[in-house]
Design a protein around this nucleic acid. Structure first.
Lengths: 202, 202, 202, 202
DNA sequence: AATGAATGAGATTTCATTCAT
DNA sequence: TATGAATGAAATCTCATTCAT
């Protein structure tokens, strides 16, 4: 069960990091939470450094993310744009929710440990963005200039992302139900795409 | 150095808090940055506690925010909806930019010090949201149900907010120019409002 | 060095507390005296707080005191009152001497930390008093009113106690030899008891 | 009113020293209690050092003691030994009560600052003792050996002193009323003196 | 693999004292 | 004479990390 202890350490560490922050989480507390004796240094049989625990935790989350993204390709082609938008929104929210711990850690620590966390930010945010921007570009191909497609993607994703950042990172009581948020988002995106299309057609 | 020591302490502390986080900023570093001897405790002649410095800094930012908001009322009535949306967007981005330090601090610390920072989050985010939601509600009065108006406001603000959270909090290289972002946002909001209006008219 | 680190810490701390006072004894000095690196906080692996060291030290002294008191019951019945008084006095002085460290600490700190030290004062002083008062009451039973018996006990014990308080707490050069003190005390108590008895007999 | 501030500083300092101990009483607290601004160093216009305040306070108490002792000579010759003993006891208790603050300070600090406080201890305790011992010696002159007279004096004074040390220094709830204590003490001393006298007569 | 113990470094905070005003 | 501000030194306590067992 040597690998189990390692996993437990990562689990509990990510939990504590996201709840109290990296600096405020002592190695002793991680050990205690993982079932080891607090302060006895048992963690160091599995990781060289406290920071290595964070790195391993983030890596693990990212690989889970990769797995999740495999699914994305399967989801796409539905024919109906609104249905597709709904599916995309649901998928994005689900992804953000499954990564809320990571999100909180990134929000707290990204500025202090850029070399280690920039990859994570990139994968969590930017790669999602690229996929979405490409999809919008392909959707009405030629009709929407790529710069505009990128801007639409950024605004569309951003509006969903911010709902989670507000709730999970800033702890603000969010003022709208998820279902309303989702259907409004679909309408908003669909109206925008139509608008751009009609403008290009004119 | 015409400013008070107290002011300098707040300035430098907010700077350091936003750059390195609250926990990673020692009192000694704040003292050094404020021109006092590091580690001599000179800060404690002006504040009872390290946390009191944070509290004072946030209070000061919030009162600046209040001042900024006085302007908002003057800005509004332009007759042209797109012009108004452009103005709103510019104003919101400007506000967020002038509070980027506060934003970073809130993102790092809101979960650890909720009792102290919840007011700040509220004022920075929620009150802006309320104003915007009301404006949308009034704009096409009766035509957009209030629940939908709130959702549109949340998505519209969120898309602008997230551009700043990504850049300032997560440190992600933002993929779209501000001007493009702004004009696309105006089109997006305007298309959405038209869409809702035509739907209500039908 | 056959003793535990924990024991050594208590030993040295009580030493230093009694010599220089609680406040004037820094944790670093205790660590150094106990063979740990000064200022490294090694003490905190054994005690949560500097005050906890004092508490443990006092508790240990009190349990030694309890052990010592077991003997008292064996000592008593001798038949000869003067012999008994001599024995009692010797025992009381021996007890006070074996607790002189505790006595000094109590004298310095009892007013500042009442909740922690009141038990100790009680056990060290009051319980001895109760035993002595009872003995006097039984000795000439019925002949000495209980209020007077208590007063005699308090004065008798107090005169012995003050010899130690003067020497150990106030550091006054004590003007009488122990042997003289003791024999005079026996005569004093014995004369007093006789006086009360003859008064009751009249 | 320059002397008034000085007096106030001494007053409040002695108060605080006796209540919380010398080390636990900061200069800032003394200043505040004396009506000066805390931490502004106003105390240093009147004393060179925190320790100088203690020295001045003790000196002042000692000169008050001297004044009190002037009265002693007037009190003495009454002819009736029991009446004299009562008077002496009353006087000693009154003196101890008027010096209870000093007593507490001496008990806490005598071991840390011997050079400064030994004089005070000497005057407060030993000189009273010398007077009493002499009186006993003179009383039954020749009949009581001087060594025994000293021992009786030490025990008699000690029994009164300890009642005040227990109450004021150790904070122990004292188990006997003052009136009972006093009358019992008179009986005890008188019985003892009689006993010695009869022994010498035989 | 886990633990008890130790340590160097550093964090927050307090404080006696000084000095220009 | 009193004050606001500053400072060197030290105090309590925390912590990441190491090591013998």
């Amino acid at each position: 069960m040597s690998s189990t202890t390692r996993e437990r350490i990562i689990d509990e560490a990510m939990h504590l990091f996201s709840e109290h922050g990296y600096a405020a989480t002592s190695v002793a507390k991680i050990e205690a939470a993982a079932g080891l004796t607090a302060g006895a240094g048992g963690l160091y049989h599995h990781f060289t450094t406290k920071e290595a625990v964070l790195a391993a935790g983030i890596e693990r989350q990212l690989s889970r993310l990769d797995a999740l993204r495999e699914i994305r390709r399967v989801l796409m082609p539905l024919g109906d744009r609104k249905a597709e938008l709904t599916l995309i929104a649901r998928y994005i929210l689900a992804e953000l929710d499954s990564e809320s711990e990571l999100l909180r850690i990134l929000a707290s620590e990204a500025r202090n440990r850029p070399q280690m966390l920039s990859t994570a930010v990139d994968q969590l945010v930017n790669s999602t963005f690229e996929g979405f921007a490409t999809w919008i570009g392909e959707l009405a191909d030629g009709q929407i200039p790529s710069e505009a497609a990128r801007a639409i993607a950024v605004l569309g994703l951003g509006s969903l992302l911010s709902s989670r950042l507000l709730r999970d990172v800033l702890g603000a009581p969010f003022p709208v139900e998820d279902e309303t948020l989702l259907s409004t988002w679909v309408q908003l995106m669909s109206a925008t795409l139509d608008d751009f299309a009609s403008r290009a057609g004119a």
